[in-house]
Structures are given as structure tokens and as C-alpha cells.
Design a binder for these strands. Structure first.
Length: 418
DNA sequence: AACGCTTACAACCGCAGAAAC
DNA sequence: CGTTTCTGCGGTTGTAAGCGT
């Protein structure tokens, strides 16, 4: 794990600073700094604490390991499903995906995906289980690329998406007119809340399915000619006449490991903007798990907020080398947590290491959940992600998930996990 | 027990965009 | 308005643990 022996070395943007695994003493310095000054200004950490780490490294360490609200342990089946679905929709947008999984980091999800991808590729298995493929296909089948011209070609000019307006007071608000996605006329879309449009379209698909009682088409994105729309169109119930999902100019590239390159055109358009949409918001408003998407009950010992301001702790209250830090206040939620440190070397693997870090915050780690692709526990054992501070896409996702659970299983799905 | 392979994970790197100056 | 700094993201790599032989 020690990429450079844990020693000081030059080169790179962190030249002259220490690299490699973090020690708990370093962690303590960093946590203390964040407690005092909040997140951000990472380059100041070294100046103010003497920690021989570059700001980048500090940010990463905090984000991935030290901050409260982190959720460690195996992914639950529901989390796996969410990862697959989101990846199918937006590709390797790990930060975006992680924002939909409270307490999970982009790095964690990325590692999960890469490992899983390797395994499945080696086994010659498809990347997505059929039901997720179907979800993706359905969503894509309802996709409309606002950048495409009448021929469905990506419109290079004026390729900037319209700004997504978000009314925080009414996140579910719809504009006055939301035409039927399956209408004969060119379907307009609710650009503010694209997922709602997807959901509406999916409901219509579902109603159609229920009335047809027809076998379910199976979406195989790895086949040359099976874009979601095409595959479903072959099934005869959706997206007839839909243009191929066009390529979003410049940003259209889907990760090479998402779909076969032959279906690369399916990456652009509305669905991507769906989950990329909040890029139009300032970065600071992103639902970073600490800053916005709070779940204080999940992660660390929580007390009622004392103040909404950044905590300023008493002088010298915790600046010594004792292994126990005074309680700190969550600068983002006003909650408090407890830090405990042990002056030991960093441990190698997750179990002891993460346990140690979790102990710093009094974390109650969720129980391990089995799961290669949702497992078989029916989802009921999935630990709750905890309350969300705001209505987010997570809730859309949940609704979508619940809706998709109504869809009948395809034939090969029954044996998917066999 | 030794070895090799796979998996899981931490951490680094380069790049790009935003913010500050 | 150009430059610098900061921040965040995605890709990649290195290493220890796990596991089978």
C-alpha cells in the first residue's frame, strides 16, 4: 500500500512532502485542523499544523476516511443496485454516483466497480443484471437529447444545455405543461426535473406492459445493434420511431467499460444531464455527504446542535498528544462527535483500520451485508441510509426502484443469480 | 507451509474548472 | 482580463489480505 515506502520524496505536486499511508498521528492532526477550521483550504493544513502532506492528500484523506458520516463496510444489495443503475445511466461519474449513496465515497464506488468489472469481464458476464439493464433501457428509451437536431444528430452548435433551475422550496414542482413522453408529437421534456419525466414515461411503459402481458424483451447492451431504444422497440412497446440516442457533443464519451463502443451513442442526452444536471449548481452546493446529504444518525454519535456556527474550541483543549480528543462539533450539521485515537501504526486492511477510524467518531458501523449484485436478501435487510436533509435524486431513485420492482421479471432474470 | 493468483483498498497522478488575486 | 491557486474528479497503481492449489 505504501506507494513510496511512506517516506518523504520529491516530485509531483506534493514534492518534498510525505506520501504513502497515513498514520493515526497524521489523521489526528488533520481532524483537529478540520474541527477548528472546517473543510477546505487544504493547503493551509500544512502551514498550520506542520503536517507534511500536501493539500490534495489532506483533502483525499479527509473525504475518504476521516470525515464523519462515512459509511464503511460492504455495499448493501440496494447500494449495489443503485451503483449499477446509476453507472448504466451516467457512466464513470463516481462522484455523481456517490452523491446518491449516502456515506459512500467516489473512491469506494470506483474501486467496487473496477473490481467487479474485471471479475465479470473475465467471466464473460454482462455488466448489468437484466432487470437493471431493463431499467437503463427504459430510461434511455425515454431519452430525448436536447442537443440533437431533427435527425437525431448531436448539434455541435449551441451544445450547452439549458440551465437547470431548481426550486428548493418545491423540488417536485413541475412546469405547467408536461406532454406525454410517448405522444406522437415530439415529446418535450421537463428540463428541470428530467427524472420525473423518465418516471412518467416508465409508468406508461409499465401500463402498456401490464395490458399487453407480453414477454419482456431483454436488453443486451453488449450487442452491436441493441441500444436500449432499439431493443425495447423490438419488443414492440416503446420508443418506436425514437431516434438513436444521440451523442452529446464533446462530453459524449461513455466510459469504455460501460457499454460496448458500438452503442456509444447512448451516453448523451437527457439522462446524462439528469444526473449531471446539478453541475449547473455551484460545486459547494453539491450534495457532498458531509456538507449536504446529512445522515447524522447513521454515522457518529450525535448530539443536538449547540450552535450553527463553526466550532471554536477552547485553547489547548485538545492540542496535546493524548489519544482522546474532546468532542467536536459537526460544522455542517451542528452535531457533535467524539474522536478517539490510538497511537498505533496504520493497519493494513479495512477491518481493523476502519474500525479504528470509526471509533474516532463513535461510528456504529452497519452490519455486513452480503452481496454480489443485490444478493438474495430481498432488500429488506439493507441498512437504511438514514435521513436525508433534503429531497434529492436519491428519493427519485427510490421511487424509481420501487416502480421498477413492479415490472415483471424477464425469463433469464430468474436464473440470473443462479 | 509455500506459492501464485485474485480481491480489496488506499493513495497518487494529471487534468480541468472554479475561485481568488 | 490574465494569472495563480485551490478544489474536485477520474484514472491508475501499489500493496496487503484472502484464498485456492
Amino acid at each position: 500500500m505504501a506507494r513510496s515506502g511512506g517516506g518523504v520524496e520529491g516530485g509531483g505536486s506534493c514534492g518534498g512532502l510525505k506520501k504513502g499511508p497515513w498514520t493515526q498521528a497524521e489523521d489526528k492532526l488533520l481532524v483537529d485542523h478540520v474541527r477548528r477550521h472546517g473543510e477546505g483550504n487544504w493547503n493551509a493544513v500544512r502551514r498550520e499544523t506542520g503536517l507534511q502532506r500536501c493539500g490534495k492528500s489532506c483533502r483525499l484523506r479527509w473525504a475518504n476516511h476521516l470525515r464523519p458520516n462515512l459509511r464503511k463496510g460492504p455495499f448493501s444489495p440496494e447500494e449495489e443496485r443503485q451503483i449499477l443503475r446509476l453507472h448504466g445511466l451516467i457512466g464513470n461519474k463516481w462522484a455523481r454516483i456517490s452523491s446518491h449513496l449516502p456515506g459512500r465515497t467516489d473512491n469506494e464506488i470506483k474501486n467496487y466497480w473496477n473490481t467487479r468489472l474485471k471479475r465479470r469481464q473475465r467471466a464473460g458476464l454482462p455488466l448489468y443484471p437484466p432487470d437493471v439493464e431493463r431499467e437503463i433501457a427504459l430510461l434511455r428509451a425515454q431519452n430525448v437529447n436536447p442537443f440533437a437536431d431533427s435527425d437525431g444528430n448531436a448539434n455541435a452548435s449551441g451544445s450547452l444545455p439549458p440551465p437547470l433551475l431548481y426550486d428548493a422550496s418545491n423540488p417536485f414542482a413541475l412546469p405547467p405543461t408536461v406532454p406525454s413522453p410517448s405522444g406522437s408529437a415530439s415529446p418535450l421534456i421537463n428540463q428541470n426535473y428530467p427524472l420525473l419525466n423518465q418516471m412518467q414515461g416508465m409508468q406508461q411503459v409499465f401500463h402498456h406492459l401490464a395490458s399487453q402481458q407480453s414477454p419482456q424483451p431483454v436488453f443486451h447492451p453488449h450487442h452491436q445493434d441493441s441500444s436500449g431504444a432499439a431493443a425495447l422497440g423490438h419488443g414492440g412497446f416503446v420508443s418506436a420511431g425514437l431516434p438513436p440516442l444521440p451523442t452529446r457533443p464533446q462530453a459524449a464519451e461513455l466510459p469504455s467499460n460501460q457499454f460496448d463502443s458500438s452503442s456509444s451513442g447512448s451516453g448523451g442526452g437527457l439522462l446524462e444531464s439528469l444526473l449531471l444536471g446539478d453541475d449547473h449548481l455551484p460545486r459547494h452546493n453539491h450534495p457532498s455527504m458531509v456538507k449536504v446529504s446529512s445522515m447524522p444518525a447513521l454515522s457518529y454519535s450525535y448530539s443536538e446542535p449547540v450552535s450553527s456556527r463553526l466550532p471554536v474550541h477552547g485553547a489547548g483543549s485538545d492540542s496535546d498528544d493524548t489519544s482522546h480528543c474532546l468532542p467536536g462539533e459537526d460544522m455542517h450539521h451542528g452535531a457533535t462527535w467524539n474522536f478517539t485515537f490510538e497511537d498505533v501504526k496504520p493497519m493494513k486492511r479495512r477491518t481493523p483500520s476502519e474500525a479504528g477510524i470509526s471509533d474516532m467518531f463513535g461510528v456504529v458501523a452497519p452490519g455486513p451485508v452480503p452481496g454480489e449484485w443485490f444478493g438474495t436478501c430481498g432488500g429488506s435487510t439493507a441498512p437504511s441510509p438514514g435521513p436525508s436533509s433534503a429531497v434529492t435524486d436519491d428519493e427519485f431513485g427510490l421511487e424509481m426502484q420501487q416502480f421498477m420492482s413492479l415490472l415483471p421479471l424477464s425469463i433469464d432474470e430468474h436464473s440470473w443469480n443462479a
